[in-house]
Amino acid sequence: MLDVIVKDDILQASLNEITEILGEERLASITIERAVIGLFFIGVKLSNGYGGVSYTPIKSIPGAVCCPSSASGFPIPGKIQGARVTNYVKDIHSQSAVRKSFAIAVLNALSHACLDAREPQNFVVEKGVDPLDVIDIPGDALVVVIGALVPYLRRFKKNKQPFLVLELDARALKEEEMPFFRHADQAREIIPQADVLITTGTTLINDTIHSLLSYCKREAQIVIVGPTSSMRPTPFFQRDVDVVGGVLVTKPDELLDTLSEGGSGYHFFGKTAEKVIYRPI
């Protein structure tokens, strides 16, 4: 795994902000209308009409789901629909990666509701934009990517951009990408060299994000990207993140249908969810 585990206070800070914006009474009245734990993503639709997604940490499941030890790490089937969101957001502190990711999907849906409930005060929202469209990466800058983010690796190779990929599983990279591979255990050594660090919200699920951010040099540009990171962005900015890229679910039911059929981001981007970025003012 990626270095030291640190408590997920970004998630708690995001939940605190959501509670402040929506209010405890309103938050307590919102329930889960529908949920899907898909092969690639977990998705929820809330009773207020908002949807949220988060990565399915499939590799964290120790055995087949028919095994009681594995099933205990999941939200209880048959008990989710109609349950209050307050019953699930507390799982942002769960030791089960699946339960935690489910809680993050709920958090992301609530964060979308907050955007409509209150005009952002300390950040700007840009829809239909990718983080790499708004950051300036000098041609000689070293980019360190946490995980095999295929579209970004393709772009860096095309532009001959210097980059390294920190990844647990070398099989996630193509043969021609292996010169750029560094095992995730080298994070403490590699990240301080980065002029640009790009990571995903998956690091929120495995509790590594705070240690990874702490390794960055002061002048590094930091980007958090992916559907899992679609929550309130202020806690990221307070930790020197420059751009947060996520998604806003535009058609919750259609999105959940796609996830239930094994769909991935390629199947819902621009169709049932749109890319969005947040930048601090």
Results as ranks from 00 to 15, higher is better:
residue 46 L to C: 10
residue 20 E to N: 10
residue 207 D to N: 15
residue 281 I to H: 13
residue 186 Q to Y: 03
residue 251 K to L: 12
residue 101 S to Y: 08
residue 230 S to R: 02
residue 67 C to R: 09
residue 230 S to W: 04
residue 57 P to F: 08
residue 111 S to M: 01
residue 102 F to M: 00
residue 69 S to A: 14
residue 22 L to G: 04
residue 41 F to E: 08
residue 67 C to P: 04
residue 217 K to P: 00
residue 63 G to C: 09
residue 226 G to M: 05
residue 16 N to D: 15
residue 14 S to G: 11
residue 186 Q to D: 09
residue 179 P to G: 00
residue 11 L to E: 04
residue 250 T to K: 15
residue 216 C to Y: 07
residue 188 R to D: 13
residue 153 L to P: 09
residue 101 S to C: 08
residue 218 R to Q: 15
residue 264 S to P: 03
residue 145 V to W: 00
residue 275 K to Y: 04
residue 119 E to K: 14
residue 163 F to V: 08
residue 2 L to T: 14
residue 267 H to Y: 12
residue 253 D to H: 11
residue 40 F to M: 13
residue 246 G to K: 03
residue 277 I to G: 01
residue 7 K to A: 14
residue 198 I to N: 01
residue 187 A to I: 12
residue 188 R to W: 08
residue 280 P to K: 14
residue 203 T to E: 07
residue 123 F to D: 08
residue 100 K to I: 03
residue 41 F to T: 10
residue 263 G to P: 11
residue 69 S to E: 15
residue 277 I to H: 04
residue 246 G to R: 02
residue 131 P to E: 07
residue 46 L to D: 05
residue 57 P to T: 02
residue 171 R to Q: 13
residue 174 K to F: 09
residue 219 E to C: 10
residue 107 L to Q: 07
residue 236 F to I: 07
residue 75 P to S: 07
residue 36 V to S: 11
residue 30 I to P: 03
residue 109 A to M: 00
residue 102 F to Y: 05
residue 184 A to K: 12
residue 163 F to E: 02
residue 274 E to W: 07
residue 29 S to C: 06
residue 193 Q to V: 07
residue 207 D to C: 13
residue 185 D to G: 14
residue 179 P to Q: 06
residue 78 G to P: 07
residue 82 G to S: 01
residue 223 V to Q: 00
residue 247 V to W: 02
residue 49 G to R: 08
residue 272 T to H: 09
residue 173 L to Q: 02
residue 182 R to A: 02
residue 235 P to A: 09
residue 34 R to Y: 05
residue 186 Q to H: 11
residue 101 S to K: 02
residue 138 P to G: 08
residue 95 Q to G: 13
residue 56 T to N: 08
residue 132 L to S: 02
residue 155 R to N: 06
residue 176 E to M: 13
residue 67 C to K: 11
residue 17 E to C: 03
residue 132 L to Q: 06
residue 114 C to S: 03
residue 208 T to W: 05
residue 35 A to W: 05
residue 74 F to S: 05
residue 220 A to N: 10
residue 155 R to S: 09
residue 47 S to E: 10
residue 199 T to Y: 11
residue 148 A to N: 01
residue 256 L to N: 03
residue 69 S to Q: 14
residue 246 G to N: 04
residue 68 P to C: 13
residue 224 I to W: 03
residue 132 L to G: 08
residue 179 P to R: 05
residue 54 S to Y: 02
